[in-house]
């Protein structure tokens, strides 16, 4: 861990993140981690442990105060805002606990949205979005708006959206947090399928049961990696 490997999709090298909220708050205090291509990693920890900060850094939503974060060989700490946006749009796919779909857009439009910013032309965007929605079992819900879909369906739209630009990495932040257990199972099954298809997945959760679906669990507490647990299927 922490050793740069050509086949690592993500590497974090002694990453620190502090926030200035009146006083200095340390969210991450020196984290090193690498995600090999095709791996399935769960980051587990109680709330306030820094696991969301870790996810935001890897996803290019945030920049580290110190240390290096590389995604697909690209160092995010030196990237400009526009470059980080491009990385978010093409190399990383986010799946959020609260789905975060655009309320006024249909399922197809939501899935196609990352491709808008990635410069795909309209007909290819739509075609790709339809394909992906069919893959997640929503081929009959293409033109529904989020309000017309159930929680599980919304999360599947979100997963299809994350897959749209064919990213190197899928980041899932408590993806089952807002759905019932049975739906959560199906979402986790879908992520498992994606992993089986060769996608690299980083999952953030506070539930052991969910984390156990991964190949390994990185335990985070108070902004540092406490231990890494390799799971054998």
């Amino acid at each position: 861990m922490g050793q740069a490997d050509a086949d690592d999709v993500v590497t974090l090298t002694d990453v620190r993140k502090t926030y200035d909220l009146g006083g200095t708050v340390q969210a991450l205090g020196g984290v090193s981690l690498s995600l090999p291509r095709g791996s399935y990693t769960a980051v587990m920890g109680p709330s306030g442990s820094g696991k969301s900060t870790l996810l935001n850094l890897v996803g290019g939503l945030d920049t580290p105060s110190e240390g290096r974060v590389t995604v697909g060989g690209r160092d995010l700490s030196t990237a400009t805002e526009a470059e980080r946006a491009a990385i978010r749009g093409s190399r990383v796919g986010f799946v959020f606990q609260t789905f975060n779909l655009m309320p006024r857009l249909t399922a197809v439009e939501n899935v196609a949205m990352p491709l808008v910013f990635d410069g795909w032309d309209r007909s290819r965007r739509r075609e790709r979005a339809r394909e992906l929605l069919s893959e997640v079992g929503l081929g009959n819900r293409l033109d529904h708006k989020p309000t017309e879909l159930s929680g599980g369906q919304r999360q599947r739209v979100a997963i299809a959206r994350a897959l749209a630009p064919d990213p190197e990495l899928i980041l899932a932040d408590e993806p089952t947090g807002n759905v019932d257990t049975e739906t959560g199972e199906r979402i986790m099954g879908l992520l498992g399928d994606l992993h089986a298809d060769g996608h690299t997945i980083l999952l953030v959760t506070h539930e052991r049961r969910i984390a156990e679906r991964a190949e390994r669990i990185v335990h985070v507490r108070d902004g540092v990696v406490e231990r890494t647990e390799e799971l054998i299927d």
Binding site: G59, L61, E81, A82, A85, A86, R88, G89, S90, F94, F96, N100, L101, M102, M113, P114, F117, D118, R161, P165
Partner: peptide, 8 residues
């Protein structure tokens, strides 16, 4: 959301 999916 737009920024998360790649909007500059």
């Amino acid at each position: 959301i737009m920024k998360a999916v790649g909007a500059r």
